[in-house]
């Protein structure tokens, strides 16, 4: 479905600070894939998602969606079929607007016209969908989102994104800013929605056991390259120890060097 061909990103090209954030990445994401991505800070995970989402343009290479070259398509156009959740729970919703207004804007993608679609039928639909979150939010539809916790807002962002039926979802450490309990809840919801709605997803995580537990494919990144990939049966048999061993084999690094990989 999504295909990345020979994708490279260089920051500060031609300067002393030249930094090759991604180095000739080739990746094919199939429909229904749930890919988890791990790697130390600066490995290029977020850059990779930024290129897929369109908030960054690659220095070289191209992005294809179902065979169509979308490399030059701006982010807002790609957003109509690519859903994205950020680490910062405030980025997915508007704080100074009520829950129902937020949902009116987000439950469908694309330009909004001069009509008022929020009516009792839509409210009823929102109410029934909100019940899935088990957070009691269906009783707080007129409240402004400033009143909600980070976990609640991230769960909402997730629900609203799922309702807009994106072809691909990108999760950029979307539970990292939450407390452990809320992170667990949001992650469970993510997993449930992905399998229930048969979504295609790419998820960055710092937590190796999550990367192993969720999804059907796993990518390990380092210094702008995908250094290890595992899927299906082989992925199911992975353990955290095996992953670390693999990393050592490939990069010939000592344990001290890759503490960052293990952090969090």
């Amino acid at each position: 479905m999504i295909e990345l061909k020979n994708l490279s990103t260089v920051f500060g090209q031609g300067t002393v600070n030249e930094n090759r954030a991604l180095n000739r990445i080739n990746l094919k994401v199939n429909e229904g894939d749930f890919i988890t991505i791990i790697g130390s800070n600066g490995a290029g995970k977020s850059t990779l998602l930024n290129l897929v989402a369109g908030s960054l343009s690659p220095t070289e290479g191209a992005v294809f969606l179902n065979g169509r070259d979308i490399t030059r398509e701006p982010e807002y156009k790609r957003a109509r079929y690519i859903g994205r959740i950020f680490q910062n729970p405030l980025l997915g919703t508007a704080s100074n607007m009520s829950l129902e207004d937020n949902m009116t804007i987000t439950h469908k993608k694309g330009f909004k016209w001069l009509k008022r679609s929020l009516n009792s039928r839509l409210r009823e639909y929102f109410r029934s969908e909100l019940k899935q979150l088990n957070m009691g939010l269906e009783e707080r539809m007129k409240e402004n989102l400033v009143m909600f916790s980070g976990g609640q807002r991230q769960a909402l962002t997730l629900l609203m994104m799922v309702l807009s039926k994106p072809a691909l979802i990108l999760l950029d450490e979307h539970t990292a800013a939450l407390d452990p309990k809320n992170a667990e809840i949001v992650l469970e919801l993510t997993n449930r929605f992905i399998s229930e709605y048969k979504l295609t997803a790419m998820m960055i995580t710092h937590n190796m056991s999550h990367a192993i537990e969720f999804g059907n494919r796993l990518l390990m990144m380092d210094k702008g390259e995908i250094i290890f990939e595992s899927e299906g049966e082989a992925k199911r048999e992975l353990t955290v120890e095996k992953l670390i061993d693999r990393f050592h084999q490939i990069r010939h690094k000592t344990f001290e060097d890759d503490k960052t990989l293990l952090s969090e």
Partner: peptide
């Protein structure tokens, strides 16, 4: 106007431009 879908999206943009981009609307 600000109670229509378009008006609400304008309000959301003043609040959070990324959210509007994520909705597939050109800010």
């Amino acid at each position: 106007f600000f109670r229509t879908d378009l008006g609400m999206t304008l309000g959301a943009m003043g609040n959070n431009e990324q959210m509007v981009i994520s909705q597939g609307v050109n800010p």
